[in-house]
Design a protein around this nucleic acid. Structure first.
Lengths: 144, 144
DNA sequence: CGGGATCCCGATAGATACTG
DNA sequence: CAGTATCTATCGGGATCCCG
C-alpha cells in the first residue's frame, strides 16, 4: 500500500475539491440560476407579484412539484416572499425581494451576453461538426 | 377521452416549452456555464495556454473523461482552441479564444454578484430554517 | 386552491481499465 | 502524454395520489 494509484490520489483531491466547491459562492450561485425553472420564475415575477396558479399557467409545462420546489428554495434564499391569504379558497402570492430583483438584473446580463454571442457559438459549432475529423479518424467516433 | 386531464394538457404545453427552451440562447448559455467543470477550465485557462495534464493537475479531482468531454464541448463552441504538437510524447495545448475570454468576463460578473450577496442569502437561509414553520405545522415536515 | 408524499425512470457523472 | 471505451451508481425530474 506504499504506492498510491493515480485514482487514489485523485479521489483525495476530489474530496478537497468538493469541500471547496460547496463553500464557493460562485458555484452555489451558478447551481441556483442554472436550475431549469429558476430563471423562468424570476422572469415571470419581474412584472410584479403573482399567485401560484398564475405562475403555473405562465410557465406552462412545469409540474406542481417542480414549481413548488423552485419557489421554496427561492424563498429560503430570500429571493422572493410568500404571502398566504387564508381566504375561503386559499390565496398565495409570490413576489421578488430586492435581492431577487438584483439577481434578475444579473440574469439579464447573462441574457445579453447570450444573445450577443450565440451566433458565433453556432457558427463555431457548425464549423466543428463539418470538420473531416482529421486523418485516421480511428474508431469513427461520431461526436454527437 | 373527451375530457383531457390536467397532466395531458401540461404535457402538450411541455413540448412547446421544450422546443422554446432549446432555441433560447439564454438557457443554452446557462446550461453551458453551469456545467460543473466549465467554469473551472475557463478560470484555469485565464492565465494563458495550458497542456492537458497541466489542466488535469490544476483542476484536481476531475476524471480524464470529464476533462476531455468538457474541453471538447468548449472547443466545439469556439470558446477555446486545441493545438496538437506531434512530438515524441504528444503535446496538446488548450487556449481560450477571444470569445472564451469574453465568457470568462461574464463569469467574473457572476462571481462578483455571488461574493457580494452570498451573505444575504445565507442569512435568509438561516432565518428560514429556524422558523417555527408557522402554526399547525401539520405533518411536521422538517424541510431539510 | 395550493400544496406534500411517494414511486419511478432516464440521463449522466464518475470509476476502472485499456490504447496510440 | 493524452486520451477512449465501458459499466455502474446516483439523482434530478416527472407522474400520481392525497391532504388541508
Amino acid at each position: 500500500m506504499a504506492t498510491q494509484t493515480a485514482a487514489q490520489r485523485r479521489e483525495e483531491a476530489r474530496r478537497e475539491y468538493d469541500a471547496f466547491i460547496r463553500s464557493c459562492p460562485t458555484n452555489q450561485l451558478l447551481g441556483r440560476i442554472s436550475d431549469k425553472w429558476v430563471s423562468l420564475v424570476l422572469a415571470a415575477l419581474g412584472d410584479g407579484p403573482m399567485r401560484y396558479s398564475d405562475l403555473a399557467r405562465k410557465i406552462a409545462g412545469v409540474s406542481p412539484k417542480m414549481l413548488t420546489q423552485t419557489l421554496r428554495t427561492l424563498e429560503r434564499d430570500g429571493l422572493l416572499t410568500r404571502a398566504v391569504t387564508p381566504s375561503v379558497p386559499v390565496r398565495v402570492d409570490y413576489e421578488l425581494t430586492p435581492l431577487g430583483m438584483s439577481l434578475r438584473m444579473l440574469l439579464a446580463a447573462v441574457k445579453d451576453w447570450a444573445e450577443a454571442n450565440i451566433e458565433q457559438v453556432h457558427e463555431a459549432r457548425d464549423r466543428y461538426d463539418s470538420e473531416p475529423a482529421a486523418a485516421g479518424a480511428a474508431t469513427g467516433t461520431v461526436r454527437r
